[in-house]
Amino acid sequence: MPRWRVLAVFLLPAFLLYSVFIVYPLVTALDYSFFEWRGIRQTGFAGLANYRDLFGVYPYDQQLWRALAHNALFFAGTMLIQNTVGLLFALLLFRYGRGKRFLQAAFTTPYLVDPLVVGYLWSLLLNPTFGPVNSLLEAAGLDSWALPWLGDTRTALPVVILVNAWQWVGFPMLLFSAALAGIPAEYHEAARVDGASAWQAFRRVTLPLLTPAIGVVSVLTFIGNFNAFGLVYAMAGSTGSPAGSTDVLGLLFYRVAFVEGGVNAIGRSSALAVLMFVFIFGVSLLASSYFRRRERRLL
């Protein structure tokens, strides 16, 4: 058997699964988004009408931008908190190896729980009427801190970002740990021998060498945050309570596709799905190529 056929035999199963479960639905969504729908019946070519509706029909026109802005905040907050803390944990574990395995396992345990469950548990903990968090704060004399965390438009999104970080902080930690282990110790030692402070050695030697890991973490965080759904849904419902202050693209899609239904739900929701895919895919590509250029400069 020629070599290419052997290769084909090995590639075929993955290719088929990929086509059936990823490429086919994507192409279908694109196809659906160009049609007008009556329930599950296609009634005619709609051109860009479904896309125009998303940008032109109140309240979707406002909700779309609001959701996009919240996703951007979600991403910024996650980069700032989850990934910075993840890097800090990785450095500490790398430097002071004691209990490393146990701590790594502990930090990654929340992975095992579905975001929906995590969101539900935290919304119980933060419940203003019966929740233990506010009871504890009050018991400690911090009454003014016993806020309706998920019921105040100013605190709801930050709380969701923190809970998300609580669940996923182990992920950047693991990736950074692996990357740190891959940096030859001599570099750091040489810098210290040359008189660099610990901070300078980290800033000038370790951090630049982490660029590939930072790139991977950033892009995966971006993809995860812009596709956020389960956690926000569990903590803030399908409308992004309170008053839409936690509304994200995933929730908007859910509402357009399933909650408000409507006769043309398939057309509009497919259009939104295509927009989300193009945006996330496009930005991820740009970010990847940016980080690749940065990496090349390191060599």
């Binding site: 419940n127 203003p128 009427t129 019966f130 309706p148 998920l150 019921g151 105040d152 309570s241 309170p242």
Partner: peptide, 12 residues
């Protein structure tokens, strides 16, 4: 209504 009604859920 209950205090902080915007944070209050149906089971509550």
């Amino acid at each position: 209504f209950p205090k902080d009604v915007v944070a209050v859920k149906i089971p509550d």
